[in-house]
Design a binder for these strands. Structure first.
Length: 483
DNA sequence: TACCGACAGTGGGGTCGCAAT
DNA sequence: ATTGCGACCC
DNA sequence: CACTATCGGTA
């Protein structure tokens, strides 16, 4: 196949809204090497190209093409993925854009933007061609709904406002089949990106896991641990290859933690690792999202406790506090207590819950939601499927401009954009906004919390408040943004 | 038949590194 | 030194 | 992180 064929396939996939049809088209061409390479280069999250806006060039009608899955063009992607940036990168891209013909240039652009624009992504692709696109997944929570709780009591873990860190810990050992497993520890984010600022926690964590496994295999405390889990951990290497699930916080502030963890050549000295789960690493090896044989949360919670007991003194590795709750009332009372202690909220987990490598209704998060009414100061257009309608509203929050870009229905995006255009025209015609339809009106905005800069974290539109008078009178304080 | 779970695709504040200015 | 962009975290 | 829209399997 050549690039033109790939574009034709992408058009076919884009043309149908049916997910089954998209999958069928993918399946039909699943063996084509060019398609496979295109899908991988576009959707592998570990390949980034450093360009979100592509250089404009005068395209030729006829020119170079993608031919099969080989050729010099792939070196361009590899160079960008390898870190080539700036003018050098821009020249590479614009040179190729002038060489490629129309379809092939389009394909080139879509891969670089990491969006083939046909309504498929890593999940659908891997569903049809298992393992084609590299990915990483860990367990995540849904918003709390009481009806999701099937049995009481539940365990409520504290939810810290920090960073999810998964520690992959492997103890050096020769396996039954002779495979040699190195001794190593790696820290990763919830999307599988490595953290480099917590190397000082590797040795103590490794030490704790080693002791845990030694005591485990000597039958030290295994008698009261779920037999399924013991069988797995003793009969396989899983006990020596574990993933330690934690939240890392530093200096009691999300911004501080963010700064400490992102520094390129830094050590997050103040970082505390709050461990809330331990899972056999084998669960992360294959495509399976879960394995009921790997123990329920009762077992894993106990394992975390045993692990933490074996952490060398002084190392900032602790057990995330958690509490048993027997009713919804107890949950809410606990939530209020932890909020009063400055924590973000709680994560509710069933005692018999298995670890699932996906967003699961088994974990339910409760966190703060605040509401405020804001004056609309401006608006901006959306992108992609929201072109020609509202992208978001510019709102005033105590003198700080907050962009509110989510929460609208598609109908509201169209309507608000119309109203905004009307207000702009009126202002142009009369030099002022006479009776504005959108500008100067109130909208209710929900958010998580205020930020240190005085803005809103996670702002989203709830509804208009035309029923409520604007504090300073209708249309007060309107300034149209400069063109 | 009506509901709901999984996906895709929009959008936010804030932090860093890097390249251009 | 400052600014803007891209990648990531939430 | 937050949200909405859609398809298609389930209840």
């Amino acid at each position: 196949m050549i690039g033109n064929d790939i574009i034709a396939i992408l058009e076919q996939i884009a043309a149908t809204a049916s997910r089954n049809d998209k999958e069928a088209i993918l399946a039909k061409h699943a063996r084509d090497p060019l398609l496979r390479r295109v899908l991988t280069y576009a959707y592998d999250p570990f390949r980034t190209y450093g360009l979100k806006k592509l250089p404009k060039v005068a395209k030729r009608g006829e020119g170079q093409k993608f031919i099969g899955d080989e050729g010099p063009i792939w070196a361009v992607f590899d160079a960008l993925a390898g870190g080539v940036r700036g003018a050098k990168a821009e020249k590479l891209v614009s040179d190729w854009l002038t060489l490629l013909d129309g379809d092939n240039a389009t394909l080139f652009e879509r891969i670089l933007l990491k969006d083939l624009r046909c309504g498929i992504s890593e999940k659908t692709i891997n569903g049809v061609i298992p393992g084609l696109v590299p990915n990483f997944a860990c367990m995540l929570a849904h918003k709390f709904q009481a009806k999701r709780i099937k049995r009481w009591p539940v365990r409520a873990d504290i939810k810290e406002d920090g960073f999810r860190v998964l520690g992959f810990v492997q103890i050096g050992r020769t396996g039954a089949d002779g495979t040699i497993y190195d001794e190593k520890v790696g820290f990763f984010s919830r999307s599988g990106k490595p953290y480099t600022t917590m190397d000082h926690l590797k040795a103590p964590l490794l030490e704790a896991v080693k002791k845990l496994c030694a005591d485990w295999q000597s039958g030290h405390f295994a008698s009261d641990i779920d037999t399924r889990y013991v069988r797995h951990t003793n009969a396989t290497l899983d006990g020596l290859r574990v993933v330690v699930e934690s939240e890392v916080v530093s200096n009691d502030s999300f911004a501080e933690t963010s700064s400490a963890l992102r520094k390129k050549d830094g050590v997050a000295e103040g970082a505390s690792m709050l461990v809330f789960d331990v899972v056999p690493m084998s669960l992360f090896d294959g495509d399976d999202q879960s394995n009921p044989d790997l123990g329920d949360y009762k077992v894993r919670h106990r394992l975390v406790a045993e692990l933490i007991k074996r952490v060398p003194v002084g190392a900032k590795i602790q057990h995330m506090p958690s509490y048993l709750c027997g009713s919804e009332e107890e949950l809410m009372a606990l939530y209020e207590r932890v909020r009063a202690r400055g924590k973000e909220g709680i994560i509710v987990k069933p005692l018999d819950g298995i670890y699932e490598r996906k967003r699961s209704y088994s974990w339910l998060k409760i966190k703060a939601e605040e509401t405020v009414d804001l004056v609309v100061k401006g608006a901006y257009e959306g992108e992609g499927k929201y072109q020609g309608m509202l992208g978001g509203l510019l709102c005033d929050f105590e003198g700080v401009e907050v962009r509110v870009g989510g929460g609208y229905s598609d109908e509201e995006r169209k309507e608000f954009w119309r109203l905004y255009q009307h207000d702009l025209k009126a202002a142009e015609a009369w030099g002022c906004v006479g009776e504005p339809l959108l500008l100067g009106t109130l909208v209710e905005v929900e958010y998580h919390e205020t930020t240190p800069d005085g803005s809103l974290r996670h702002p989203r539109f709830v509804r208009r408040r035309l029923d409520k008078p604007v504090a300073d009178g209708p249309g007060a304080g309107i300034e149209l943004e400069a063109a």
